[in-house]
Design a protein around this nucleic acid. Structure first.
Lengths: 244, 244
DNA sequence: ACCTGAACACCGTTCAAGT
DNA sequence: ACCTGAACACCGTTCAAGT
């Protein structure tokens, strides 16, 4: 709009924005936000940046590294408030819920990125710190809290993944129809002779929408942590001592 | 080996085995068993059956349907014993552990198939029936048990998926090295100022191998179910009434 | 140092033409 | 009815050649 103020004389248009890690990640985030995770391919991303796929490999080792960067950048929009011990459970629910909606609504399907690796970026650590702080405030023991951070991340990711699947399914009437047929067949297959317990539960098997189930599962996990003694249960080591 | 006993005169070789759903699923199971889930592509499967990929589509609508069939066939090798109320917890652990090792060891990476859809094949129903029966024997309420079946399946699948990832990673020394570097960096990034709770937990964050953590998580879930009242918490419905 | 056209070795799925 | 060669529209990644 305004005339170019740089010392060099102006050009018709500014030169193509130089590629950079940041520009690549920003473009990737925009793609996921607008088109969902399936649209995030190296080729499509390159196209969005007006270049060829080979150019991306100057800044990023491979698709996996890109995924790590994109996931952590997205997690950056999660705000972590200071722990209020009186409201730890409420705060934990809010944080977990925020993560799910980030992965399902704002960045549809992004849970898949969290499943490729255990996220350990800066923002992921910040969220872990907050979760651990909340659990400690709730009286969860050290070893249990350390384990629970992974368990809760896994739960949140799995829920988000599942919800994304169904969101995608129900976006397409044809696929939705096929899925409803599958579920209907499932119920038809429950004969009381072969599957007495399933048959006895009946409607209870499908009660509760995503939000209710997510919230109940979170309470189950938290209550389970408070009710399960952990001393002496985790003794072996899978990683060696990375710090030494 | 032995001469052909059929009325029609013998041929040099028996005609190429006719394709069928069963033959396709059997070949697919063999591929996953021997080469892992990544090797299960329509093209590779067709090759194993000595035909072209287009031929498969006569028997199977698409890759998703194949995945459903393959998963349920694999689950078929899980044996479900009658519930013994005195040993319900032990039996539940054994069943869950068996499912994990099926998806990690016998059919490496197969957890991914379970994440594509909620498994509802005949064998999956049989396993669900067994899980529900065990939970009821343990005194879990109806609504909680109905919900817990999904929760436990999700847990088992997520654990198996994660363990498969790491098994794959550690099969390749180069990738293993890269992953260890990632984890080491993670620890280096834990400054006590920014992440006090994480820093305070230290080694506790990485204690416990896969088996110990799986077993602890299972107890957390089961104890959580026993400790969490569910009446009135699941009221809405996400599916409509498939039976009506 | 950065960029890129072209290639390599793959995908799932469809369809017209065969038997 | 079943099978299939060939094509379509994609993938991630590499590499030699350019600037």
């Amino acid at each position: 709009m305004s005339p170019d103020a740089s010392p060099r004389s102006r050009r018709e248009r500014p030169a193509k924005r130089a590629l950079s890690r940041e520009a690549i990640v920003d473009a990737a985030l925009a793609i996921v936000r607008e088109e969902g995770i399936d649209a995030l391919t190296m080729r499509h991303l390159a196209q969005a940046l007006d270049t060829g796929p080979a150019s991306l490999y100057v800044y990023v080792a491979n698709r996996d590294e890109l995924w790590d960067l994109v996931f952590d950048a997205a997690i950056g929009s999660i705000e972590t408030e200071p722990t209020d011990p009186a409201r730890w459970r409420e705060q934990l629910h809010a944080l977990a819920g925020r993560m799910v909606s980030l992965m399902v609504v704002e960045y549809p399907g992004m849970a898949r990125l969290a499943m490729a690796h255990i996220p350990v970026g800066d923002n992921a650590l910040r969220v872990s710190e907050s979760i651990l702080s909340l659990l400690k405030a709730g009286g969860v023991g050290d070893q249990a809290a350390a384990y629970a951070a992974d368990l809760l991340s896994m739960y949140v990711t799995a829920i988000a993944y599942e919800q994304s699947l169904y969101a995608q399914l129900y976006a397409d009437p044809e696929h939705e129809q096929r899925e409803v047929a599958r579920i209907t067949q499932r119920f038809a297959a429950i004969s009381p002779e072969r599957f007495p317990t399933l048959a006895a539960l009946g409607d209870k098997l499908t009660t509760g929408d995503g939000e209710e189930r997510f919230s109940l599962g979170l309470d189950v996990l938290v209550n389970g942590l408070l009710a399960t003694p952990t001393e002496g249960r985790l003794t072996r080591t899978a990683w060696g001592e990375p710090g030494s």
